[in-house]
Design a protein around this nucleic acid. Structure first.
Length: 860
RNA sequence: GCCGGAGUGGCGGAACAGGCAGACGCGGCGGACUUAAACUCCGCUGCCCGCAAGGGCGUCAGGGUUCGAACCCCUGCUCCGGCACCA
């Protein structure tokens, strides 16, 4: 007797009322409090008796409220944590807040409140919401990046990088967002060049800015061996880094009509094989030689063009659709292989920031150069030809593709060589003369970290009229953000007007100096936060090195793929930089990365407060309970897929939990609405029923375990539903309450525990109470073992096909021989009818007898 | 344009590794329970033909490989994500 109904009244005997209903709102807060009181999820980082598992999930930006998308990332992550704990691992699952950033500052300007107050208020609410998930975050490890105890270490790290030459200040043309200030290159998106965060159109400005020298790691970042990242992320990062192999070639220059003697012009090309096809040269408008090389009679026109290009927002330069523009500068370049003089142009289709900012143009073999050549009526000379294509008309367009057997033509001594071979020969010939060399160029740029905003980490340097750039000494850290600043709503960094902040003594000479007012890109905060989690209170160092050595790299990181070339790349870069300044001893921050999909609004758009399409989990939790919401999010579909939000179907998951409740608490109850209730299925006796229950439970355990390991939560839940449905069928029969039944219920609760922690804890405690045992949390139980003998079956069903079409199913002993199986298949009544006396050509048994296919000649 | 991913019932989605397509859930239909409703439970539910037994068709489209294809190959289409003249 395991029912909880202690005093059944007689009038309930025939139609027993269901036990107390499942009421998550009564259960969930109680258990959450209890777990917290008991400190169940505080991780003892010093415990080395068990294997460690560092599970990290991307910390949220405290925008004010959690939406369903946060739950979609975090509740399955929590299930992973719980699953690992049940395997005896010491799991660390920290949480914190990415608390610096623009929205706080905008709210401050708009509502005249302090960004810190706004942020901290939001964090309060989000802490409550995060707790309502029933997740096992270790709140003792929380970090808030806007706290001086955190950001002082941003500053400290910056100073280490500065010392090591990994941070530097440089004036160059940068992307400027009217709201966010300068942006790193990867933070500008789309053909219309808009800011990744606020969407504003980005302009160009020449400014002195701080950079981190991440390009140093380009090659190392291309190496993903030893880390398990999803293929799409690896591809995106690889493309972003954009390694190109080729050659750098030096051209002498000369004023038009004069002898050589100007500056040298260096170009990068991936196609040195086409050098003989170069018919003009192009400089980017920003190229330093433009001024020097421009002939006096061309100066006015060139300067106008350069000015126009500088002012042009990149919107005008919109994609390749725009017609090429450019002007000749009145100078020539001299082709180092044949001495040919070719004109130099300035044109904005060549980018200042890539390669050398100048190209040799080979219109015959490059579409962009081809287009330019057509417009400016420049010669197009073919130098590579595929076999049989030597007479191709160049009016048809550039020949860009590579094909087998192509040869160089019109290339002097190199004619006749293969393209690769010829290219290599040209490079080595140039190299011998000091006119070129093999070269590799990357698309990746150094990380621009300066932001002209208030609400971020102050960059800890001082500008002294005498000593120049002076780092703030470590002992003066943190450089604190003033709490109150004056916004005039002008959009300009208010720190620039804060005299108390601005004016300092030079740490070197003691004279009057001025502080840097730029703050750091907030991606810097998030580039190392998982190290700080390990010792968030640590003073004197950014982290406890011994703990870092024991606990990192992170074993599993979960979060969205939208930061593929931002946060996820910065994190890798930062780790390598920290390594190189001797702070850590590892190359990569994350062993394994999983990207969940994104939950979109019902309108199919990205969920955001501004779009007004966010879904508030609080409402759903109030209605169905956290367990149902957790389960529903996991059940919707594959975790890496996401999709538009639709609450349709959440009732199904809730019903499932109700069935679990019923099965666990009221095994002997009967369904008044079901005539069959209480009787065994036809042809099943008690022994068979008990066996069926046990078999189903162990098979489910086998499959569910595999699904958890693969993060296949949707099918995991489907299988538990199947088990529940089967148990429901036996409820009220002689099988219910049998040891097999009891075991099945026990396994079901254990299997469900990581995903639905509250209801399973409640039912577990009630079972313990009923058995007179003292309470111990289900979440401290060990994951059960599959009994292999339980999953075996004496007979199995084999589908029989004739010519690949399913015609019958036969039941045979599991250990049947293949000869007997074939005989049994051919003996099938249905098969014989279809064969109609024809003799099979072949009988195929697939997968060790899982299926039989009888092949006969088609009667036609 | 280039790179990556995906197209399966009315819907979300299953299908190990080329072997029973559509698990599980939603929705729909029918039924039970109830004075009634809600809740709950049971059954049916890819499409077409058929009273039924059964048959035909069916995983974006068209070809191919195979005893056998949602899965592999070729051609094309559509959708989603990334990149944005990167020489």
């Amino acid at each position: 007797m395991t029912t909880q109904d202690a005093s059944p009244t007689t009038e309930q005997a025939t139609v027993p009322r269901r036990v107390e209903r499942y009421d998550p709102t009564a259960i969930e807060p109680r258990w959450q409090q209890r777990w917290e009181q008991l400190g169940h999820y505080r991780t003892d980082l010093s415990d080395t008796s068990r294997p460690k598992f560092y599970l990290l999930t991307m910390y949220p930006y405290p925008s004010g409220d959690l939406h369903i998308g946060h739950w979609y990332i975090k509740t399955p992550t929590d299930a992973i944590a719980r699953f690992h704990r049940m395997h005896g691992e010491n799991v660390f699952l920290p949480i914190g807040f990415d608390a610096f950033g623009l929205p706080a500052e905008n709210a401050a300007i708009k509502n005249n409140i302090n960004p810190r107050d706004w942020t901290m208020g939001n964090i309060q609410n989000m802490r409550r919401q995060l707790r309502s998930m029933g997740a096992t975050f270790d709140w003792e490890a929380e970090v808030v990046t806007a706290d001086p105890s955190y950001y002082r270490w941003n500053q400290w790290l910056f100073l280490r990088f500065l010392e090591a030459g990994l941070a530097y200040r440089q004036t160059s043309t940068v992307d400027w967002c009217p709201n966010d200030g300068t942006l790193a290159r990867e933070q500008v998106e789309g053909a219309d060049r808009h800011c990744w965060r606020c969407g504003a159109k980005v302009e160009k400005r020449d400014l002195p800015q701080w950079y981190l020298r991440v390009t140093k790691y380009a090659d190392e970042l291309l190496d993903f061996s030893g880390i398990d990242f999803p293929e799409p992320i690896r591809v995106m990062q690889t493309n972003w880094i954009g390694r190109s192999e080729g050659g750098e070639i030096v051209f002498e220059t000369a004023p038009a009509g004069h002898h050589a003697g100007g500056a040298q012009l260096r170009v990068f090309t991936t196609r040195p094989d086409t050098l003989f096809g170069a018919t003009f040269m192009v400089l980017a408008p920003e190229h330093p030689l433009v001024t020097e090389l421009t002939a006096s009679d061309r100066r006015a026109e060139v300067e106008a063009y350069v000015a126009q290009a500088a002012n042009r927002t990149e919107i005008d330069r919109l994609s390749t659709e725009r017609e090429k523009t450019g002007v000749p500068i009145g100078a020539d370049a001299i082709n180092p292989v044949n001495g040919e003089r070719i004109p130099i142009f300035v044109a904005d289709y060549v980018l200042g920031g890539y390669g050398t900012g100048a190209i040799m143009a080979v219109p015959a073999h490059d579409e962009r150069d081809y287009e330019f050549a057509l417009k400016f009526r420049l010669p197009i000379r073919r130098v590579v030809a595929a076999p049989g294509d030597e007479e191709r008309d160049m009016a048809d367009g550039a020949y860009v593709a590579h094909s087998a057997g192509e040869r160089l033509v019109n290339s002097g001594p190199y004619s006749g060589l293969g393209a690769d071979e010829g290219g290599a020969a040209i490079v080595s010939a140039l190299e011998a003369e000091g006119k070129g060399k093999a070269a590799i160029t990357y698309r990746l740029r150094d990380w621009l970290i300066s932001r002209q905003r208030y609400w971020g980490t102050p960059i800890p340097v001082v500008y002294c009229p005498d000593d120049g750039i002076v780092p703030v000494p470590d002992e003066d850290l943190p450089v604190r953000l003033p709490d109150t600043v004056d916004y005039h709503g002008s959009g300009e960094n208010p720190l620039n007007r804060d005299q108390a902040f601005l004016n300092v003594e030079c740490p070197k000479c003691g004279g009057p100096a001025r502080r840097e007012t730029d703050t750091m890109d907030t991606f810097m905060d998030s580039a190392w936060y998982w190290y700080r989690y390990l010792s968030p209170e640590k003073a004197g160092a950014p982290f406890d090195r011994a703990l870092v050595e024991r606990w990192t790299p992170v074993d599993q990181y979960t979060g969205g793929s939208e930061h593929a070339v931002m946060h996820l790349l910065y994190a890798r870069e930062f780790t390598k930089m920290m390594r190189d300044v001797g702070l850590i001893d590892q190359d990569e921050p994350f062993r394994r990365l999983f990207n969940q999909g994104q939950i979109l609004g019902m309108d199919g758009e990205r969920m955001s407060k501004s779009r007004g399409n966010t879904v508030d989990p609080d409402d759903l939790v109030a209605k169905f309970g956290a367990d149902t919401v957790r389960l529903f999010l996991m059940f919707m579909g594959p975790w890496d897929q996401g999709g538009p939000w639709s609450p349709t179907g959440i009732g199904g998951v809730h019903r499932f939990l109700n069935r679990i409740w019923t099965i666990a608490l009221d095994p002997h109850g009967r369904e008044p609405g079901d005539r069959e209730s209480g009787s065994l299925p036809a042809g099943v006796d008690e022994a068979a029923g008990r066996m069926a229950v046990r078999q189903a439970a162990h098979r489910t355990l086998r499959d569910v375990t595999a699904d958890y390991e693969a993060f296949h939560f949707n099918t995991m839940i489907a299988k538990l539903m199947e088990l529940a449905n089967l148990l429901m069928r036996y409820r009220g029969t002689v099988v219910a309450g049998s040891p097999e039944w009891d075991e099945a219920v026990r396994l079901a609760l254990l299997m469900l525990a990581p995903a639905a922690p509250h209801i399973t804890e409640e039912l577990w405690s009630r079972r313990q109470a009923a058995a007179g045992e003292t309470w111990s949390s289900i979440h401290r139980e060990r994951w059960p073992e599959v009994d292999p003998s339980a999953v075996m079956e004496a007979t199995r069903e084999v589908p029989i096909q004739v010519n690949g079409k399913l015609r019958d199913r036969i039941t045979v002993p599991t250990d049947i021989s293949s000869a007997d199986l074939e005989a049994a298949a051919l003996a099938s009544e249905r098969v014989r009818t279809i064969l109609a006396g024809r003799v099979p050509l072949r009988v195929v048994q697939a997968g060790g007898g899982r299926l039989v296919n009888v092949v006969v000649a088609d009667p036609g």
